[in-house]
């Protein structure tokens, strides 16, 4: 049992929860994630990045977007409620190094997993530029926290309601082409965004890492459901990743595989609406 200590709504459908998990808080490193399950009998297991942790309080912070059955049910939970199963920390920690200039690109909910990585990269001495994008100003999350870390922050929205009216790849390209070309890039967001970030940095030879969010079951390397093709080889996101060289990832295949269970997800979603009404 993992008690929810705090819950904040960050945007229309993005929530932040602080959850009791002392063992995970102690061991976790930037880039790692947990798998949670709301009950042991019929619930599914879903992965979420550890956005932050407090070793002394014994808590971890999760930031998630309510997109389907499980995340919506999670969003209904309140401070004092608990999450039945929480496994972690999973995955390989981020490789940290002083590269010099790094650019961290986050799209949508991808800003949540990007935050601890940007923080860690800053801590080891990098000059950090953050580019963060959202569809509109109401969907921008963690701006304040990111400003606190970043040496420079570029905000983009699709409709121009906050920051620049651009896709994140536009400022990314400017940076790469400019006088302060980054030595290293991290891109986290929807697969399509990561794919285009990879295509943007590739011609400039800027080594780029992305964090993949394939569908998972166990998170321990046992099922192979999270497999992706990287550099022509089969890799398991939960144990070999979640971070990979973005220039080598087969994003097209990954996007197809993410839609494998569309029908059931849709049905669950409708079921949820019936049960709880259309309210968020």
């Amino acid at each position: 049992m993992n008690i929810i200590r705090d819950k904040i709504q960050l945007s229309a459908d993005v929530f932040q929860m602080v959850v009791e998990a002392p063992l995970i808080a102690r061991e976790r490193k930037a880039g790692q994630f947990i798998i949670l399950q709301l009950d042991s009998t019929f619930a599914e297991r879903i992965p979420l990045t550890i956005a932050d942790a407090d070793e002394i309080a014994g808590t971890i912070t999760l930031i998630f977007q309510a997109v389907g059955g499980t995340t919506r049910k999670l969003a209904l939970k309140n401070t004092g409620d608990s999450i039945e199963n929480l496994l972690g920390p999973l995955g390989q920690p981020t490789h940290l190094q002083n590269f010099g200039r790094v650019v961290c690109v986050g799209g949508g909910i991808g800003v949540a997993p990007l935050h601890p990585i940007a923080q860690a990269l800053k801590k080891v001495g990098n000059h950090v530029t953050v580019i963060m994008g959202a569809r509109n100003k109401d969907l921008v999350i963690l701006e304040k926290q990111m400003r606190a870390i970043a040496d420079e922050l570029i905000l983009c929205t699709d409709d121009g309601s906050a920051g620049r009216k651009d896709l994140v790849t536009v400022p990314l390209k400017e940076l790469c082409a400019g006088p302060n070309k980054p030595d290293f890039a991290v891109a986290i967001g929807p697969p399509i965004m990561m794919k285009f970030c990879a295509e943007t940095t590739r011609p400039f030879g800027v080594s780029t890492v992305c964090s993949l969010n394939s569908i998972m079951v166990d998170g321990t390397g046992m099922c192979g459901g999270c497999r992706v093709t990287v550099g022509g080889e089969m890799r398991f996101v939960c144990v070999d990743g979640p971070e990979f060289d973005a220039h080598k990832v087969d994003f097209d295949n990954m996007m197809l595989r993410s839609k494998a269970f569309k029908a059931k997800e849709q049905a669950d979603h409708e079921c949820f609406i019936q049960e709880y009404g259309a309210k968020k």
């Binding site: 192979g224 459901g225 093709t229 087969d250 197809l256 595989r257």
Partner: peptide
Amino acid sequence: NLVGVFSANEYLT
């Protein structure tokens, strides 16, 4: 890696 290919472990789990 096509959609619809499973390891037995995933399918059975």
